[in-house]
């Protein structure tokens, strides 16, 4: 039987492959919001892989870092959207 630790390492690896596929959209995207959508997806996948690695290695610290990463990436996305809107509002 497969152990759970192997499954969590495998899911972190799968998320890494998915992050590379999303990075293709960041490079290829025809318009700027396409690139921002790719970046947002990459951020969510990084949070998921951090949670998986935290469960695989039994480090609670990884999950704390995942919380902070989620909030910081949210603020980054909001500022990029604000910049794209333009105007003085």
């Amino acid at each position: 039987m497969i152990e759970f630790t192997t499954l969590f390492y495998g899911s972190a690896l799968l998320f890494g492959v998915l992050i590379i596929i999303c990075a293709l959209r960041v490079f290829l995207g025809p318009t700027t919001p396409d690139r921002v959508v790719g970046l947002d997806t990459i951020n969510t996948l990084v949070v998921g892989s951090m949670i998986a690695l935290g469960a695989a290695m039994w480090e609670t610290l990884f999950i704390d870092i995942a919380i902070v990463y989620a909030v910081l990436s949210f603020i980054t996305t909001l500022f990029i959207a604000k910049y794209l809107e333009g105007g003085e509002d």
Binding site: D40, F74, L78, A81, K82, E85, G87
Partner: peptide, 12 residues
Amino acid sequence: GAHAIARAAHKM
């Protein structure tokens, strides 16, 4: 964040 991106894209 997704709502903010969609709003920015529509305003662009």
